[in-house]
Amino acid sequence: MTDRSNDEARLRRYRAQLATGTRLREGLDRIVSGGTGALVVLGGNRVLDSICTGGFALDAPFTATNLRELAKMDGAILCSADVERIHSAGIHLMPDPTLPAVETGTRHRTAERVARQTHLPVVAVSASMGSISLYVEGRRYPVDPPAAILVRANQAMQTLQRYQERLQQVLDRLSMLEIQDQVTVRDLVVVAQRWERVRRLEEETAGYVAELGSDGRLLELQLLEIIVDTERLPELLNCDYGDDESDGAKALEELLDEELVDPVTVARTLGFPEVLETRLRPLGYRQLAQVPRLPVTIAARLVEAFGDLQGLMGATHAELLAVEGVGSGRARTIRDALTRAAEASLNE
């Protein structure tokens, strides 16, 4: 997993801890309703210990009520990373004053610097604004009300569904070109660009779902359905056109949005020739993945036996039977699936 992916996964995990329906969020909402502020640090390490003074140890169970009552006092509240225990309260935090900070309020500036210095998530509740902010590595992430998150989540889901439809369109075209043995680097680049846009939207939508908590159950089910439909695509394309040592899908994640729209940059990232009209020959893994109940091991044997998709398309029933693990019924199923694919390409 790349560093950026790790950072996004961490942020998503922290947002999930603050989601509607969690004990932490309930406690923070009580603090907002009570018109007080708070500074809550999740987790601990030696760096945090070195900048803490005063306060008192608790080691009490974490409850929304306990958090609300402790927030009435001055000082920060230190909780376990899993938000199961409240370790201490009334803590005076003294982060390095030379660390850069963009916040102006005392509580939020402290939260920003503590998050930057300790690499721990810090939550600040503003008494005057009635807002909740999450600080991770010194960056501020507003924790919005569920209604505002739901609006953005629905918009992201609608956009994702449109992108998913467009991805399916280019995949249908790729299938047609594969059957006709007319695939070029440009065709693979178009698919890769569509796939990566869908993946990024899935990631964004998943973040909203995590923030919504119990309110995002319906969106979560819709998102899971979309992910299931496309999760094997990078693996199958890599088997068809890549090699065992490359992972083009992971490499695409590192591209900026403006780089992703450049076909030559995408081709280079995927390890393909930069001449976009260069012809490519698929091995046939993606087409075989559409054969009902065909094990991956047998698909690999078929590709090994016939070389590529064109060899598979020309294989007779008897030749298919000669492959280990392919019986009469399975051979017929494979032939029928490949024949339907060929007929569909002719109708395009």
Rank of each mutant, 00 (worst) to 15 (best):
N347T: 14
A267G: 08
D308A: 11
L67G: 00
V190C: 04
T106R: 14
V170E: 10
A206K: 09
T269W: 05
R186S: 14
A57L: 08
T159K: 13
L99I: 04
R68P: 00
Q169N: 10
S131R: 15
S33W: 12
V266S: 03
L221T: 12
D7Y: 12
M73R: 15
G271H: 02
G34Y: 06
E220R: 13
V228G: 10
R268M: 09
Q169V: 13
R68Q: 07
D244R: 15
R330W: 05
L188W: 01
L11T: 05
D243G: 15
S214H: 09
R217W: 09
Q287K: 07
D96W: 04
S328D: 13
T159F: 03
R116G: 02
D181N: 15
T184S: 11
N154V: 02
G242E: 01
R13I: 11
V198Y: 08
L177I: 04
E304C: 12
L150G: 00
A101H: 03
T265A: 12
L260Y: 04
E348R: 15
Q193K: 11
G207T: 09
D82K: 01
M1F: 08
G138R: 06
P142Y: 04
E84A: 15
E258A: 15
E235S: 09
P292N: 10
E211M: 14
L70P: 01
L218W: 10
I179F: 05
R335V: 02
A315H: 05
V125C: 06
E8G: 03
E253F: 07
Y135K: 01
A60M: 11
V183K: 02
F272G: 06
P292S: 06
V32L: 02
E203K: 11
A148Y: 13
R4N: 12
L218H: 13
G242D: 05
T118Q: 01
P100Q: 01
E225G: 14
I51W: 04
E137K: 05
R286T: 04
C52F: 03
I298W: 03
L283G: 06
Y241T: 02
E103P: 10
R12S: 12
G314R: 14
A101N: 00
